[in-house]
Nucleic acid binder design. Structure first.
Lengths: 152, 152
DNA sequence: CGCCTTACTGCAACTCGTCGCAGTTGCATC
DNA sequence: GATGCAACTGCGACGAGTTGCAGTAAGGCG
């Protein structure tokens, strides 16, 4: 089991209190989902999470997993963006707002951090009077390697 | 029936020849799907298209509609991007590469044209060595009106 | 410790979209 | 106009994700 680099243990521990503070409940199912998320680095889709939960407990049901993801997103514990196919991908680390750059050819993915995106966000604010949510952003394109491979 | 401003009639008419040129066939089902698309301005999802086709012919089946959309995209007749929920949205007008700006609060949508996006594309080319496909781009955010309404 | 409220779970049914397969039919050729 | 190939259609089953509902259980309170 690779250790969770995403959030440190203490931070995951606060989820229980955050739930309680909102009148929500700490259940075995939620505890298990959190456990799987804590062991996840980077991104995970709903169905991947469901699958991993089922390895620990085959009785896990889809609706509970998807509803828990919604709750955790409301708490700010996770966030989602969309992959190239439009599928939701959840980020386990809300450490910093960031977007994604995904290559349509090879599927390689890189992050865009807030600093890099700032000039772009400013541009849209100025030209379109529009605030961009970087978190939700996935840009499709072609990476350098695929460009070289395809077009010489 | 609002006239199709998207492509002029002549352009739609070439689809049949484009299909034939690739060894593909002109079928009543495809003819009807094209007819519905020709009467569509802007964007449409697969299920919306299916629904409209069923109004003309209740026997229309999902697989034919979705497969035809793929074919038409291959021909360059339509293109898709993803809405905020990740659902595919097809653009009927391939007149110009463009992206979208969608407000998470009110759903309002604006287009980003190639000229506006050019500096951004250049930036990613330079900093990440990555070519962005503007067509596929949908930026989530908050429009001026919603910002004003929510945050004074 | 037991009660009570209500958030939560699990089920079943549903939507959207995809895929393999068998039967159909466009269309090129004779 | 008939023939034959293979692209296409429609079917049925499936996977991902959502929702309403009835039953379960978290956890606050006495």
């Amino acid at each position: 089991m690779t250790a969770a680099r995403s959030r440190d243990r203490a931070t995951w521990g606060t989820v229980r209190e955050e739930l309680r503070a909102r009148g929500m409940r700490w259940t075995p199912q939620r505890r298990q989902i959190l456990q799987v998320l804590a062991a996840t680095d980077g991104h995970i889709t709903g169905s991947e999470l469901l699958e991993r939960c089922r390895k620990l407990d085959p009785a896990t049901t889809p609706s509970t997993v998807y509803r828990t993801l919604d709750v955790l997103e409301e708490l700010g514990v996770i966030r989602h963006s969309h992959g190239l196919d439009g599928r939701e991908e959840f980020h386990v680390q809300p450490v910093a707002e960031h977007g994604h750059l995904v290559c349509s050819s090879c599927g390689a993915s890189r992050e865009i951090d807030a600093a890099q995106a700032a000039p772009i966000a400013r541009a849209f604010r100025r030209t379109h009077d529009f605030d961009i949510f970087l978190d939700h952003l996935t840009l499709a394109g072609r990476c350098a390697a695929c460009r070289a491979a395809q077009a010489g």
